[in-house]
Simulated assay, not measured.
Amino acid sequence: MADTSYQPAPARRARRSDPDRRERIIQACLEVIAEAGVAGTTHRKVATAADVPLGSMTYHFDGMDELLREAFTQFADTVADAFERRMAAVEGREAAKAAVVAIITEDVFGTQRDLVLTHELYTLAARDSGFRDITNAWMARSRRALEQHFDPATARLLDALIEGLTIHRALDTEPHDPSTAVDAVGRITA
């Protein structure tokens, strides 16, 4: 006769708590973009970099477009936050001019990663107008930070100068003399 005594059901595995998973995916996405570009970024690569199951990608994001938007928004906000802090910390026009020079020569594109991410965002925004809201919000924040010390027209010119000189500094094969930035800022703010 068979033993019909009660056998408890096997214990269920405890569900893994991972409250930072979404943020880890976003950060991993930025690292994959920095390494492989937007064109080389896939759900699989990001999931591997974030050390999450592939299914987590579709659980947390509707698709690659949403993930890219979240990642680039977070990146732009991080850079804009640093820009705003730098400009808010100074008092007076001369200190503001020195802060702009420091942004050009030290802050923006301080790493190869930031350079690549910025250019990948610019390229994506140039091809897909849906991403221009990220770049426009970033530029608006930069101009507002500059407008704490300069009139709106000068702030717009300085913002363009910052972009241009940092791109030159980042991509040029020759070292840049910081006096170029000092001279350019001086001319625009004269």
Rank of each mutant, 00 (worst) to 15 (best):
Q27I: 00
A50P: 11
G40R: 01
E35K: 05
P53V: 03
T118M: 14
F109V: 02
D62V: 12
R15T: 08
E94D: 14
A96Y: 05
R169Q: 10
G130P: 07
E174M: 11
A140H: 05
M139V: 13
R44L: 06
A170W: 03
R144C: 01
A9N: 07
R187D: 03
R21P: 01
A102M: 02
E163D: 12
T111Q: 05
I26V: 15
R187F: 10
T166A: 11
V182I: 10
V38D: 03
D51F: 01
T105D: 15
E91A: 12
A126S: 15
R169A: 09
E66Q: 10
S129Y: 06
L171D: 15
T73H: 12
A39S: 15
S129V: 13
P19L: 03
Y6E: 06
D20L: 13
A80K: 07
A137R: 15
E120H: 10
E174S: 11
I162W: 10
E91G: 09
Q112N: 04
F83T: 14
I104W: 12
R21F: 00
D151P: 15
H149C: 01
Y59P: 02
H43P: 04
E23S: 03
H119A: 00
A50G: 11
E70V: 00
S56K: 00
P152E: 11
A82N: 08
A137D: 15
R141D: 03
T111G: 09
D114Y: 05
E163W: 09
R156K: 15
T154A: 06
T189A: 02
L115N: 11
R16M: 04
V90C: 12
F61M: 04
L30S: 02
